[in-house]
Write a protein that binds this DNA or RNA. Structure first.
Length: 563
DNA sequence: AGTTTCGGCGCC
DNA sequence: AAAGGGCGCCGAAACT
């Protein structure tokens, strides 16, 4: 008996397992075994483990050195399927799915996050709901049927499989950690911030800059208090609405220079300073918790340590083990390439069919402007920019790449009208709230305000309310960012499989960038594996397409030396 | 006193 | 020149 098996930790500390048939139904008796890791280890022929939650099961397996080939995460699939079915707000637990199947009362989901984020990690999922294995299998089998009812069943199956693979990668990254030199980090902090003073106050350099700011204003000013700074500028006869960098930058006043420098360093100090080091780095590894499918667009998030916002200067502390290297791989111009693949715009596909710098090509073809302007225009189209230079060049972009721009325009209109918007593989954008749906609120989406506008109003830009326009921008961005996330998951899945045969370990992933930590002698293989994985992911995700997905890879000992 | 929101900025 | 999509994190401010 090989292929797929289902698995459910039992309340007595053991585990229930059973083989599944091609229909996703039980194909043999439910077995009970006393130890999870032993049960899995004893069945290397199993290709895919079907379980309720990867975060519940897989860390326990990894802790005993057991790696699995593939899995199917039922609750993650439930979330994606509910979204596709336009039922975003409904509870997504396996228990809820079973209740819907059996017609019982549907239990609400447990709270997503503990009220005390520092106290416990979602890794341990303390409120896990136990389902007997046959019930879990019933939910799984029904999910297989629901895939068939989606717009593109093949793509949807690919999506849930890719998401499950992402869950495995995230768990493995959480276990590996990012190689981190505390010594280098402290050295960087000392160079930037100077000595620390006893008592946990500002380090020397910050104190000096604060003094310079105060001297420039002629009175004591706390540069870390926006209200204080705004008042100080007002007293100097300068009106500023905020102390944001872009607003302060253009102000002509001697306090500006030290103030901006203070803000830059203050940020390093509070977000990635000595206490950060104390909190997040242990035994040469920074261990954030990667959370696949952390956002509705499919992008990952991390809990702890701001792992996806490591400032460039701090990356000097990311150092490979002795004899090992970091292979840092960054997808080149991922968003416009994805837009080319999903919109099938002939002009953009042609440009994206080459590995050379896409923004440069767009600039050469579409306008007289330079590469930077082309990039602004493309990203402006994707983000729904409403003013500025990007908008100026948008007209040229529209003429040259009409299908591409129309694709995101259509998504924006659909979002404004409350219609469903999907990524290429079928990940679905939450509709506006106001229909008994709190998922959009959780996701930080602009709230529905159709109650204040006529329901049958034709879409006219000038008539759209602020929230309606915000929903349009969200949907516009969603199709590109989300499809890029679809593709990135396939990439990770392929890369993970190749690395399984080596000592190489995936240690970092950030939207369009991946870091592999490997012995020096494996670097050539890893570089090739990334290239192959990118091409495979492109083919699998988008089917026949001329669009290429090149990566810039750097083999370095220190992350800061990449790029 | 404890919790939530805001302002600001880091990354993509 | 003006400020748009997704996040997390921190301290301060604003609340209960």
């Amino acid at each position: 008996m090989t292929g797929r098996w289902a698995l459910a930790p039992a309340e007595d500390g053991g585990v229930e397992i059973a083989p599944l048939g091609p229909d996703g139904l039980l194909a043999g008796p439910v077995l009970w075994e006393p130890d999870l890791a032993t049960a899995v280890r004893a069945r290397p022929e199993v290709v895919r483990w079907v379980w309720r939650s990867t975060a519940e099961v897989y860390p326990r397996l990894l802790a005993t050195g057991v790696r699995v080939e593939r899995c199917y995460d039922i609750e993650d699939a439930e979330t994606l399927l509910l979204g596709h079915e336009g039922r975003y707000g409904e509870p997504r637990s396996a228990a809820a799915a079973l209740a819907r199947l059996r017609g019982g009362p549907v239990p609400p989901d447990p709270p997503l996050r503990s009220a005390d984020p520092g106290a416990q990690s979602s890794l341990f999922e303390p409120r896990a709901v136990h389902l007997p294995l046959p019930d879990l299998v019933a939910v799984y089998s029904e999910q297989q049927r629901r895939h068939d009812a989606t717009t593109h069943p093949d793509r949807m199956r690919l999506l849930t499989a890719a998401e499950s693979a992402g869950m495995l990668v995230a768990a493995e990254m959480n276990r590996a950690g990012l190689p981190w030199s505390a010594d280098v980090h402290r050295q960087v902090l000392h160079e930037l911030l100077g000595e620390r003073y006893a008592g946990g106050g500002e380090p020397r350099r910050l104190a000096e800059l604060a003094d310079e700011v105060s001297a420039a204003f002629g009175r004591r000013v706390r540069p870390d208090l926006p209200a204080d700074v705004v008042k100080a500028f007002a007293q100097a006869g300068i009106k500023v609405k905020s102390t944001r960098r872009w607003e302060i930058e253009s102000v002509d006043h001697p306090a500006v220079k030290p103030l901006l420098e203070y803000k830059k360093l203050y940020r390093i100090w509070v977000a990635h300073g000595w206490s950060w080091l104390q909190d997040w780095v242990r035994e040469g590894r920074f261990r954030p918790e990667f959370l696949a499918h952390g956002t509705v667009t499919g992008r990952w998030v991390t809990n702890g340590g701001g792992a996806l916002q490591i400032p460039k200067v701090i990356r000097r502390a990311v150092v490979a083990d002795p004899g090992w290297r970091l292979v840092v791989a960054d997808a080149d111009q991922m968003e416009p390439r994805v837009l080319a693949a999903i919109s099938r715009d002939p002009g953009l596909m042609e440009v994206a069919g080459r590995e050379s710098d896409l923004y440069q090509s767009v600039s050469d073809r579409a306008f007289s402007g330079d590469r930077a302007q082309a990039k602004l225009a493309v990203l402006g189209a994707v983000y729904g920019q409403t003013s500025g230079d990007g908008l100026k060049n948008l007209a040229a972009l529209r003429r040259r790449f009409p299908k591409a721009v129309a694709y995101v325009d259509d998504a924006a209109r659909a979002g404004e009208e409350g219609r469903l918007v999907r990524t290429w593989l079928g990940r679905t954008c939450p509709p506006a709230a106001g229909t008994g749906d709190d998922a959009t609120e959780e996701a930080g989406l602009p709230q529905d305000d159709t109650a204040h506008t006529p329901a049958d109003t034709e879409w006219v830009p000038g008539y759209a309310s602020t929230n309606t326009r915000a929903r349009g921008r969200f949907a516009r961005n969603f199709v590109v960012q989300g499809s890029a996330a679809d593709w990135a998951l396939l990439l990770l899945a392929a890369l993970r499989q190749t690395c399984a045969d080596m000592a190489a370990e995936l240690v970092f992933f950030q939207h369009d960038e991946v870091i592999v930590h490997c012995p020096e002698e494996e670097t050539d293989q890893v570089v090739a594996a990334i290239r192959d994985a990118a091409e495979l992911a492109g083919r699998l995700t988008f089917g026949q397409t001329p669009v290429r997905f090149p990566f810039t890879t750097a083999v370095v000992e220190c992350y800061a030396d990449a790029k």
